[in-house]
């Protein structure tokens, strides 16, 4: 009996329960893994040190210790803070992440929203990913702190500016695949051919390389990681909109940062790296429901490594410089990419 059949026999609420649990795991476990592998270890190795070593073997339980520490801390509200806005902001940011993860399929049947019946896919994803801007602006405004305000405003300007190249980069993929359905994009890559060779399929990183690079840069900016970390800029704005947060709410921002990195990497791997597909195995096969999430995880870890490698190597752009990069370079290139893709799509 195949997994699909077992799953189909469950009641709707049971399926939903499993999917909610899986979404939590997909966001939080991946975020935890990224924190440990990249923030604690890879970056430490780049700086000739070991990182946390005491909690668990090789410090693997450090994150749990950190979570425990943050939960115990007092949840401080600044005296003049707008209490509701200040308190709700981290949840808004995290909600955007959870909404984004639902569009990502990790196998032929391992999905959170039924992509057989809807073509929303990437369209929904791009729409909900902008919600986090609201949360950040709320945090910056609600803190009643000048540094936070500057950070929140910078973040808003930056996230809106980079939303555009992000979307335009995706448009190229959508044109080439001919669909907005995330699962169909994966199938299109798996069954595609490049110059008549179908061995590795056609992951769009090969034909949409420009879009991929733009997507990565815009993703880096959306995540507010260096070189685009002007909104948090710990050496001048003292972590910007997060300055006044402590305890649990700070933890939510912290998790949100890494979870969003993981989810964006998942989206990127679906769009450009073939999602759960690996050459040699039929992407529609049953086994991919189990293997698919693992394949996705590997791709996510690889992409986020790039993100954090860049983050810990580069200095940050100034606010005007990063705006110039977005409007004067990324957006025109992305538009040109769309035009070229469209012409080639019609021509072939």
């Amino acid at each position: 009996m195949s997994t699909t059949q077992v799953f189909a026999e469950l009641a709707y609420w049971q399926q939903t329960g499993i999917r909610v649990g899986a979404a939590l795991a997909a966001v939080l476990l991946v975020a935890g893994a990224l924190v440990y592998m990249h923030l604690f270890k890879a970056v430490s190795f780049m700086q000739s040190r070991l990182g946390p070593m005491e909690a668990g073997p090789y410090g693997s339980l450090q994150l749990l210790a950190e979570v425990g520490k943050h939960i115990q801390k007092e949840d401080i509200f600044p005296a003049k803070a707008d209490r509701f806005v200040f308190g709700a902001a981290p949840f808004v940011v995290l909600a955007s992440t959870f909404l984004l993860v639902v569009v990502v399929p990790a196998g032929p049947d391992a999905w959170f929203i039924d992509h057989h019946n809807s073509d929303l896919g990437i369209y929904l994803g791009l729409a909900v990913s902008s919600v986090s801007v609201l949360g950040i602006l709320m945090a910056g405004w609600g803190s009643s702190n000048k540094y936070s305000l500057l950070g929140g405003l910078r973040a808003t300007g930056q996230l809106i500016a980079y939303e555009l190249p992000l979307i335009l980069a995706v448009v190229g993929v959508v044109i080439q695949a001919g669909t907005m359905n995330m699962a169909d994009i994966v199938y299109a890559q798996a069954n595609g051919e490049i110059f008549g060779l179908g061995i590795v399929g056609n992951p769009y990183i090969l034909t949409q390389g420009v879009a991929f690079i733009i997507f990565l840069i815009a993703m880096q900016a959306e995540l507010a990681q260096a070189p685009f970390d002007m909104p948090v800029a710990e050496s001048e704005l003292v972590t910007g909109y997060m300055t006044e947060y402590s305890g649990m709410r700070f933890l939510l921002f912290f998790i949100g940062e890494f979870a969003t990195a993981g989810v964006f990497a998942a989206v990127a791997s679906v769009l450009f790296l073939g999602g759960w597909y690996i050459p040699g195995i039929d992407p529609g096969a049953d086994v991919m429901n189990l293997l698919g999430p693992l394949v996705m995880l590997v791709k996510i870890v690889g992409l986020t490594f790039l993100v954090f490698w860049t983050r810990f190597t580069m200095p940050r752009f100034r606010e005007d410089q990063l705006q110039r990069l977005a409007w004067k370079f990324l957006i025109p290139i992305a538009l040109a990419n769309i035009v070229v893709t469209g012409i080639l799509k019609v021509a072939f």
């Binding site: 190795f45 070991l50 190597t313």
Partner: peptide
């Protein structure tokens, strides 16, 4: 630069002895 520092930390033996042992490779 950062990438090669990471590889040096993980593999202090270099190309000849590619055994990961960051405890030896780290300067701390």
């Amino acid at each position: 630069v950062t990438g090669s520092t990471m590889m040096r930390t993980i593999f202090p033996g270099g190309v000849k002895k590619p055994i990961p042992s960051p405890v030896k490779g780290a300067e701390t």
